[in-house]
Design a protein around this nucleic acid. Sequence first.
DNA 1: GTGGGGCATTAACCTATGTTAAAAATCACA
DNA 2: TGTGATTTTTAACATAGGTTAATGCCCCAC
Lengths: 172, 172
Amino acid sequence: MELQNYIAKNGIPLEIEKGKQVFAQGELCDYVYLVKSGLLKAFYITADGKETIKSFIQAGTIIGSLNAAHCKVPSTFSLEALSRCELVQVPFNELLALSKKSISISQEFIQILLSLSLKKERREYELLTLSATERFETLCKDQPELVKKLTQNDIAKYLGITPVALSRIKHK
Amino acid sequence: MELQNYIAKNGIPLEIEKGKQVFAQGELCDYVYLVKSGLLKAFYITADGKETIKSFIQAGTIIGSLNAAHCKVPSTFSLEALSRCELVQVPFNELLALSKKSISISQEFIQILLSLSLKKERREYELLTLSATERFETLCKDQPELVKKLTQNDIAKYLGITPVALSRIKHK
DNA sequence: GTGGGGCATTAACCTATGTTAAAAATCACA
DNA sequence: TGTGATTTTTAACATAGGTTAATGCCCCAC
């Protein structure tokens, strides 16, 4: 909470319209964003121009390209608003510096990174061991409210299949 | 380094013979392990009895089931030695407690978790956007020494395909 | 050296998903 | 309410990878 409070107080508020990008794949982006309201998607555009969705980001989450912010390299993904969003922006380094001065902030950082790792581990597990149908069922069971807000196109891109394949799966 | 030194000094040394498991999927495991030598694999057994490999763990790495250690739930994967291994075992909570008292340990923890997240992100990216052939090529390019030490069986299980499919891919 | 066990290859056939294209449904809004 | 735009469905065909099983290979214990 301390960390979120810090961001809420010291960060720069941003409004992002539906369909607009917060940052784009290939750009440097040293910021981290706290999502106050709205829904976003983080996605890759592959070499052959196809989009695959890495994750959906809901209110209350902190999001940023760790890679870009931490390693000073271009982001590997884009972040785009699926609905009008209120964000608060703060430089990643500022948070890291803050964590060097406060044990409680450090601890919160550690908790956030731990839960991030667990989330990614879960996704890795699903991609590695479940079929597209099973991944779809899991998503519907775990996040029914989220699924309602998404287009089938975006769900498919998140599952790693085409919209056509998802339509087929639903048909059963 | 401070963290690794702590583990090396205060942990319990373990020797694991090739083929033996450090912990098994479904068990509680509150420990974290520093790999001093050898090679291990972390893998899942799915509901229908198939094995898929989550990652290979080489010397110098710290490994453990974050989920099991942090959330007090059974591990979702098993850890098995692919060659004779020297490990050092330390309770995860001990490290977490330590990080609450020392900023520098906290910072190291954060760095480890950051690089873990980046690694997982990369894997997620590959599973989501690359074909089996491309994943195999990437692995061969990025970790040629590792590939040499592995059986084709294990490589296939890591790529998320069957050994038969991998043999076909290599044929080309 | 012999025999057994696991690993790798090959082949034949099967299934899930991709691709393309067209039709149908839904939505957005003038 | 009508109309164009977008999303979803359906169909036909192509391809990657799964499954099973047979064969050969290699290593190692005896």
